[in-house]
Design a protein around this nucleic acid. Structure first.
Lengths: 115, 115
DNA sequence: TCATTATACATAATAATATTATGTATAATT
DNA sequence: AATTATACATAATATTATTATGTATAATGA
């Protein structure tokens, strides 16, 4: 199986990244999006996802918005006003961290920043 | 400070990477090498380092070799015979994981594999 | 129609991993 | 003489993830 080892600690940043892109997302949707983006390789478990989402809400980064689809709740998560401000900084930090990994693991010559 | 958040779970792979490159390394040397490679940004703590090294020894990936410098022990860690075989596979896995992060966090167009 | 799979939330027990603090000791530098 | 660097290590605690479990509706396939 694909090594999830190195992906530890990436769930919260990833949630922020996805919600920042999509505007709002609900839990199940996040698992499906990550599965899709990773070519079925990364399957986020509920035990990791929901505590992470709740933590981000507790920290004031995310707020929720409930919608009822028939008899089923769909709880959307979106960036709070302050969350929007911190998201940009956090994503920059994450980018730096990933590039640091690239550097540490000697993949550096393969990376060109064309920005 | 630099976000160590995303670096969680990378210590063991990083140790394997460094020892694979250098042949053998001792604990303190690993902390200094990582500090150097990361431009002083990543400071591996002993509480993370030594348990990780001991775990890799317990798992049969690494073996130790003690050297005495005066009255001070220097415990080198090197890949075991079976560790050498698994290291190649593990490093390939790690590379894939990092590239997965690059992909997930949308840094993909910046990466070209020139191998 | 019945069973299975997909959708959708969540928590609890446990395991793994990291941080912070502490401990011991020698060597080198200021 | 005091401080910093070298060098090992463990313990208490905190954080995070895995696995298992729980509830419930909707859709699909045999």
């Amino acid at each position: 199986m694909f090594s999830q080892e190195i992906l530890k600690g990436t769930i919260k940043p990833l949630i922020i990244k996805l919600i920042n892109d999509e505007g709002k997302m609900y839990g199940y949707q996040i698992t499906q999006k990550v599965k899709e983006l990773s070519s079925q390789k990364i399957l986020i478990t509920e035990g990791a996802l929901y505590p992470a989402l709740h933590k981000l809400v507790d920290d004031g980064i995310l707020v929720t918005e409930s919608e009822w689809i028939g008899n089923r709740e769909r709880k959307y998560y979106l960036l709070s006003e302050s969350g929007k401000q911190t998201a940009v900084a956090k994503l920059e930090e994450i980018k730096e961290s990933i590039l640091m990994l690239v550097q540490l693991f000697d993949l550096k010559p393969l990376v060109y920043d064309i920005k």
